[in-house]
Design a protein around this nucleic acid. Sequence first.
DNA 1: CATCAATAGGTGTATATACTCCTAATCATG
DNA 2: CATGATTAGGAGTATATACACCTATTGATG
Lengths: 140, 140
Amino acid sequence: MECTQVCICSCLRKATRAVTQAYDEMMRPIGLRVTQLGALSVMAQKGPMTMTQLAEESVTDRTTLTRNLRLLEKREFIVIKKGKDQRQRNLEVTQKGRHILAKARPIWEKAQKNLLKQVGREHLDRLVTDLCRMVSLVRS
Amino acid sequence: MECTQVCICSCLRKATRAVTQAYDEMMRPIGLRVTQLGALSVMAQKGPMTMTQLAEESVTDRTTLTRNLRLLEKREFIVIKKGKDQRQRNLEVTQKGRHILAKARPIWEKAQKNLLKQVGREHLDRLVTDLCRMVSLVRS
DNA sequence: CATCAATAGGTGTATATACTCCTAATCATG
DNA sequence: CATGATTAGGAGTATATACACCTATTGATG
């Protein structure tokens, strides 16, 4: 596969559609999308953070986060409150948020395992490594 | 990078955001997004095709295509007309469509070259190969 | 040939994404 | 300390994406 012939970006987007569809279908019963699971997980793992920090971490526009997080806030999975610096918004996962995370976990694991079975561990490990490496290189 | 720890899907989505932002920024002067370039390219290369064929080829929901293609139609880059089978829509790139494709080509090449310089050819070739492989495995 | 199933595509709705421009709060500097 | 620059975030707008449901056309079968 020659990368001078194929659009890397279209290729990435296509793969993302395929994989997202697979994950989201499995998560549908609990009403959480992989996008939302991703954001919740970051907030839960890294502790309270601001919009800008989460935006940077997730390579997402701040204005995208504003709207995505509002949905999580409405469902009471997170709280968004002003920080000491009144401009900032401190993002915190609620108890209800941790509950849905716990509920999502086994489904996520099953989705990962499915993919693993289809694609193979070595390929997937390599892919994830390459993707992360690319992100940090593109963003530097 | 252990794929049992990291969400493959979130990883993919993040990389897609990073790369899409880079491509779209370069293409902004001509007012064509990489998504649109991708769809146009497929239609130009594979010749006239139906919605369902393009949907299958690009791993995109048909209803997504309906709206994405409408934008290309409004700008007269494609025509959408009923086929012999009146249910089908035949998609064809217009002269104007080919013109914007030609205009986009050198910009796309520059975007690819940028990425190549940042990430390295071997990594990129491998990534594209792995991505395509994954798509066909997930879809089978 | 009539009727029912299958197929192609569109609409309504919801989420994900980002750009431009805007406001409010904080910071830096004379 | 006052004022201009910087920073954090939101609103308006537009595109990308997909699911549930709908219509119209075609095909299959008695």
